[in-house]
């Protein structure tokens, strides 16, 4: 259908590319390794940024939930910041870190950190109180009760938050890379736009979607599925 619309010639091909053109562009990109290099650069950034946000987000969530005062003061703030699109952090990042690697990683981290910490917060808050009572009568208190009961009980919610955080991170990365000085998928996308190479723009978009999907499905999907299996949540 796509090819059919293209062939009607309603729009010039620098506005509406043909699927065959896009396909050959993707092949070409992989052929001369430019896509592979771009994907590599992007993955490096997203992994770095996402790891930072995991560490910060999880600890932020756990710290906030431990104190009623912090919970009441910081939770609304987190919620507010979560609604802020990650691209809004870009100007700030550029001022702080300059145009380059650091600011992209910062945007990625900041883009996913709030949803991870919110999920941690929610997960811990929703641990059934009966588990805590069991832990208490069994003699587990303080940190021990936390690590042996609270965190595992909150894990399914936390994983969901991590998954959501991943998609935020991936989106933030693309936004950040539009300003990238030299490489990455977002950079190729901008390059394609600058050169009016619509085949390349759409090709990169497709690659972005596919990579996002693959990681979502195969990394987080697997982890989530195995946890749900364990908990017996998969049965209807």
């Amino acid at each position: 259908m796509w090819e059919g619309i293209f062939r009607t010639g309603l729009w010039p091909d620098f506005l509406f590319p043909s699927p065959l053109g896009v396909f050959s562009n993707i092949m070409e990109g992989f052929g001369d390794h430019s896509f592979i290099i771009a994907i590599g650069a992007s993955m490096k950034r997203v992994v770095l940024g996402y790891s930072i946000s995991l560490v910060v987000g999880l600890s932020l969530g756990l710290v906030i939930v431990a104190s009623r005062f912090l919970d009441e003061t910081l939770s609304p703030l987190l919620l507010g910041l979560q609604t802020l699109p990650s691209i809004c952090w870009l100007p700030l990042a550029i001022l702080w870190f300059g145009i380059g690697e650091d600011s992209i990683i910062f945007v990625v981290a900041v883009g996913s950190v709030f949803s991870i910490s919110m999920a941690t917060l929610g997960g811990v808050k929703n641990v059934p109180p009966i588990y805590l009572r069991v832990a208490r009568t069994m003699g587990a208190r303080g940190l021990k009760a936390y690590t042996s009961v609270v965190i595992p009980a909150a894990l399914p919610t936390i994983i969901t938050g991590m998954k959501q955080g991943w998609s935020f991170a991936w989106r933030a990365l693309m936004a950040g890379e539009l300003l990238s000085p030299k490489d990455g998928l977002g950079y190729i996308l901008t390059l394609g736009r600058d050169l009016h190479d619509m085949n390349q723009v759409v090709g990169v978009m497709i690659i972005i979607v596919i990579i996002g999907l693959i990681i979502d499905k195969f990394v987080f999907g697997r982890v989530e599925c195995s946890i749900r299996q364990r908990w017996g949540l998969n049965r209807a």
Partner: peptide, 20 residues
Amino acid sequence: TGAGPDRIVMFQEPALFPWL
């Protein structure tokens, strides 16, 4: 003064940990 392992409670629901 507090809960302790010398007095074990068995609740109405099993309250077993599903992750174990």
